[in-house]
Design a protein around this nucleic acid. Structure first.
Lengths: 200, 200
DNA sequence: AAACCGATTGACTGGTCAGTCAGCCAGCAT
DNA sequence: ATGCTGGCTGACTGACCAGTCAATCGGTTT
């Protein structure tokens, strides 16, 4: 037989199990044995594929965050209005959550908002997202479609903060999370940040 | 002598030490002995005044958060415009940070954004803040000074998310934090959320 | 069939702390 | 003086768990 026996990717299996377990219990209260059990794999195998428990989370974060960064930078390259770019960014993040809520929960709760632990480690990567958004705003100002009296960095933080708060709300069931909520959120985020909540 | 020897409040001393240590090292990597050392007090005394290490943080959070809730509800009672109410809320939070950055850091990093641990425990209290802000927005809509096509809960989350993201930026030195930055932030937050970043 | 090798297993170890507890001591009452 | 009370002390313990490692397994090469 030239065909190999199904080479089940145990590494992937461990990562996927880790997403589920981290999402369910949080990073700090999951034991490495929980991951191994969830993956249906021996304890030691986790250490065959990963240097440490931390590295499992790092891998999950970096895998996904690089996609996010690409998406932001990609949308900035397209020949669309700054407002449409912001909408693309919000859309990508919201869709990421819709597509894989567990992974996004882990990333936000354990990394992005865990500023004392993994957030520190990945600060540079996280910052790159802020900076890319700020650049979109700055370009919009240069083009005259955004006000110049709001600092781009400030606008970027407000925008990203609003997006993340929304995801947090969904994650912890503070606000409803249906498909229509997701779609509304995309346009409402942009409407809020660009137009404001006062009538025009 | 009728005057008592200075009754140094050891309980308070422990709480204040905990703020400093939690801010410096984060809750998870501070040992109870670190708190005791910082307070200049014996290890066991921490357990004389508090049931557990968790209870120390709970106390710090509740102490401060109740002030925040009062301030929000207070500002809603004053006969000012909804926009001014939002400015009061943003102002109070920003000033809280200016006045005691270490405590606010602990509250945000370890509770408000630690959704899997203490955030869960205090979810109801945190939610009350969201709800109070949402009420301000809803009243503004009823009065016709805010658009009706943005859900108050949504607006509240965006607003609070922006505020918290800003504090996070200061805490982790992603953005500069001087007194003028604080003052600008107050009005910019409201300008952003109310007026939007597009020119009127 | 023998040597080889990476994947896989899970019992074990070493270190870390949260929380306990037995008792000390200062001030006050009797 | 003797006893009492409660703040205060810090050595100790029991539980927990990340990470190690020696052994096994299954497939491939010589």
């Amino acid at each position: 037989m030239a065909s190999k026996a199904p080479p089940i990717d145990k590494r992937r299996q461990i990562l996927d199990a880790a997403i589920r377990v981290f999402a369910r219990q949080g990073f700090h209260s999951t034991r490495v044995s929980d991951i191994a059990d969830e993956a249906g794999v021996a304890y030691g195998l986790v250490y065959h594929y990963f240097k440490s428990k931390d590295e499992v989370l790092n891998e999950l974060f970096s895998e996904r965050w690089s996609l996010l960064l690409s998406a932001i930078e990609e949308s900035d390259r397209e020949g669309i209005s700054p407002r449409a770019k912001l909408e693309a960014v919000a859309g990508f993040i919201v869709d990421s959550y819709r597509h894989d809520p567990e992974l996004m929960k882990v990333i936000i709760v354990e990394v992005t908002r865990a500023a004392n632990s993994f957030g520190r480690t990945h600060l540079a990567e996280i910052r790159r997202a802020y900076d890319s958004i700020a650049k979109i705003v700055a370009d919009g100002q240069a083009a005259g479609v955004f006000r110049r009296d709001i600092d781009p960095t400030f606008a970027s933080m407000s925008f990203y903060g609003a997006v993340e708060q929304l995801l947090s709300g969904w994650i912890f069931e503070v606000i409803p999370a249906s498909d229509t909520d997701f779609d509304q959120a995309k346009s409402l985020l942009v409407a809020t940040i660009c137009d404001g909540i006062e009538p025009r």
